[in-house]
Write a protein that binds this DNA or RNA. Sequence first.
DNA 1: TTTTCATTTAATCATTTGTTTAATTCAATT
DNA 2: AATTGAATTAAACAAATGATTAAATGAAAA
Lengths: 202, 202
Amino acid sequence: METKYSDTELKIRDAAKSLFLKKGYSATTTRDIAQESQINLALLNYYFTSKRRLFEIIMFETLYDFLNKMVEVYNDEETTIREKIELASSKYIDMIIAEPLLPTFILNELKNNPTNFLKMPTAKVIMKSQLISQYNDGVKKGIYKKVDSIHFITNILSLIVFPFICSPIIMKMEKLNKTDFNKMMNQRKKLIPEWIIQMIKK
Amino acid sequence: METKYSDTELKIRDAAKSLFLKKGYSATTTRDIAQESQINLALLNYYFTSKRRLFEIIMFETLYDFLNKMVEVYNDEETTIREKIELASSKYIDMIIAEPLLPTFILNELKNNPTNFLKMPTAKVIMKSQLISQYNDGVKKGIYKKVDSIHFITNILSLIVFPFICSPIIMKMEKLNKTDFNKMMNQRKKLIPEWIIQMIKK
DNA sequence: TTTTCATTTAATCATTTGTTTAATTCAATT
DNA sequence: AATTGAATTAAACAAATGATTAAATGAAAA
């Protein structure tokens, strides 16, 4: 058991992350965080200097964890392209079901400050991943249609992530509750790889 | 020329919409709006009672316009399924290129207050549109795979809208500027219909 | 011209909010 | 037991923010 952070520091981190994810930076007040984490207001500044700094720490960690989980799938040397997409669909959907506010949060705060993303060591790795070179090989060999790989990777992410972002709309339109919606997303674990393969095949 | 709104009222509306789209509700102050629209701070409350009310008016109008533009494509009686998807891709992509902050704004504020969406008369119409029944017919006839139509409509929207939402990431990864990115999106106008048709074909 | 009413303005109010201060508690060290 | 330094607390501060007020302006109606 690591004791990297003190108990109170952890409590602040957790509360802050939860609130920032739910309401975003501006709508979250330091008093919100203090109350949620059951600590004295001054301790926030004692441990993290300022609200902005606290946010940036949370933001960095969240982004870092997220990107790491993303990339590890793409870089497996053993698996085929299909297996990678299957793994990605399955893992990402599980990941986002566990923390459904993550995508909107990341995309939002990245819109305000895209530089944060560049700082991430893993960010640039995606386009140089095993998955991309496997796809490009397929294109060269004439197995796949000649379409730029950025579309390929964008499509995978779109089909996986976007439904979560517009889940309120989907749920309203189809009169689904959260469980129903998650079922729908679990169906997509198998559907998305099929779709993607069909999309790139000649 | 309609004179529905006074000059100042219009100035406030425009500034407010621009700022709300860019920074969201909480990060936009009434003084921001006053400055941007070059009006006296008190006029905001004089015309719109409160910041919250101003926001809700803007939100409603924006959502209303957006959904209307969406639905009109889906309900054309004359066109084939393929033509509808071509039209949707082309029109939506043009629409979002013209106002790129729209999707994130709508999805964001809908997350906070999904009820707004239900109030829209057009919202429920989508799932009963011509496009959906054409798709369901195709499934019955055995031309298309048997997959629930919610996936079909979700996929179309995902492939069109999501790239805009994560445009900062795409641009960083591929070192694109805004013009390059828009070129990429214009390519997708032709690609998306192909992809979608391939996805549903047996 | 005078009156009337909507519009606009500068100033102010009452909260909220991020942050700091100074005092207190607590645990470990001497 | 006394000391030290970190952790915690209540209180307060200064700036920001949404909203209001009362006076001033201007244009149309009488």
